[in-house]
C-alpha cells in the first residue's frame, strides 16, 4: 500500500512537472467560460459531453502521451526493476488519471452550479469518473501497446472512436429503434456520457447500473487479460 501511494504521488508530481495538469486545467477553463455564456438548459445538456471528453477521451490521449514519453526516458524500465509489482505501477497510473480527470470534471460541473445553480452529486461523479477512467485508460493501453509511437496510437484511437460512433449515427438515422437504444451503451464513450448525463437528468436506473458495471468490467477485463500480460514486454522492448 505504501509503495502504491508513493508511486501515485510520483505520478501526480510528474503530471504537474510535465504540465499535463496545467494544460488540462487550461482546457477546462475554456469549458468553464463556455458554460458561463450558455443558458442553464443548454449548459445542462452540454456538460455531460464535456465531462466525458475530459474523463474519457482526454485520459486516453494523456495516457498515450505519457507512456511513450516514459518509454523514451526509460523510466518505466527502471520501475520494472524496482521492488514494486506491475499491478501497483498500473494502479498508480490509473489513479493519477482519475485525479487529473476529477479536476477537470469538477471544474466543468462546478461551473454549472456556480453560474446556473445546477446541483451535482459529487459522490456519484467520483464513482462514474472512476469507471470511465478505468475503462478508457484500459482501451488507451490496448491501443498504445499495439502502436509504434504516439502518432500511430492517435490514428488508431481516432479510427476506434469513429467506429464506436456508428451505433449513435444509426440511432439518429432511425436504423436502431427506440427500444433497442441500450445497444448504444456498448460504446464505452456513449456509456460514459450516459452516466454523467444521469446526474442531472432523469435516466433509466437499469441502464445506469448496467453502464457502470459494463465500464468497470470492461476496464478490469482489458487490464487483466490484455494490458497486464503485454505491458512489461512492450515497455522493455526497443
Amino acid at each position: 500500500m505504501n509503495s502504491f501511494l508513493h508511486l501515485l504521488k510520483g505520478e501526480v508530481l510528474r503530471l504537474v512537472r510535465y504540465k499535463i495538469i496545467f494544460f488540462g486545467i487550461l482546457v477546462s477553463l475554456i469549458w468553464v467560460v463556455l458554460i458561463y455564456f450558455l443558458d442553464a438548459q443548454t449548459a445542462k445538456g452540454f456538460m455531460p459531453f464535456l465531462a466525458m471528453l475530459d474523463a474519457g477521451m482526454m485520459s486516453v490521449i494523456l495516457l498515450g502521451a505519457t507512456f511513450f514519453l516514459e518509454k523514451q526516458e526509460g523510466s518505466i524500465k527502471t520501475l520494472l526493476v524496482s521492488p514494486v509489482s506491475l499491478v501497483q505501477v498500473l494502479a498508480a497510473k490509473v489513479g493519477s488519471a482519475i485525479i487529473s480527470a476529477m479536476i477537470s470534471v469538477v471544474m466543468v460541473l462546478g461551473s454549472g452550479f456556480v453560474f446556473h445553480g445546477i446541483q451535482t452529486n459529487f459522490l456519484l461523479v467520483f464513482l462514474y469518473v472512476f469507471v470511465i477512467v478505468l475503462s478508457h485508460t484500459a482501451i488507451g493501453y490496448v491501443i498504445t501497446l499495439r502502436s509504434k509511437d504516439f502518432m500511430s496510437m492517435m490514428m488508431k484511437f481516432a479510427g476506434l472512436s469513429l467506429l464506436l460512433m456508428i451505433p449513435s449515427f444509426l440511432y439518429l438515422l432511425g436504423v436502431i429503434e427506440e427500444q433497442l437504444n441500450w445497444l448504444l451503451l456498448l460504446s464505452p464513450m456513449y456509456a460514459a456520457q450516459y452516466l454523467i448525463q444521469s446526474i442531472h437528468s432523469s435516466a433509466d436506473l437499469l441502464l445506469i447500473v448496467g453502464s457502470t458495471l459494463y465500464l468497470a468490467l470492461l476496464g478490469t477485463f482489458l487490464y487483466g487479460k490484455v494490458v497486464y500480460p503485454r505491458f512489461k514486454e512492450f515497455a522493455i522492448g526497443g
Partner: peptide, 30 residues
C-alpha cells in the same frame, strides 16, 4: 529487486525531475 541493482546503458530517469528528486523517488521504493 531488494537485493539486485540494475544499471541500464540508456538514460532511465524522469527528465523533468532533478537528480535528487529522481533518487529520492526511487530510493523510497526500497
Amino acid at each position: 529487486y531488494e537485493v539486485v541493482g540494475v544499471g541500464f546503458e540508456m538514460p532511465i530517469h524522469f527528465n523533468k525531475l532533478t537528480a535528487l528528486e529522481n533518487l529520492k523517488y526511487f530510493a523510497a521504493l526500497y
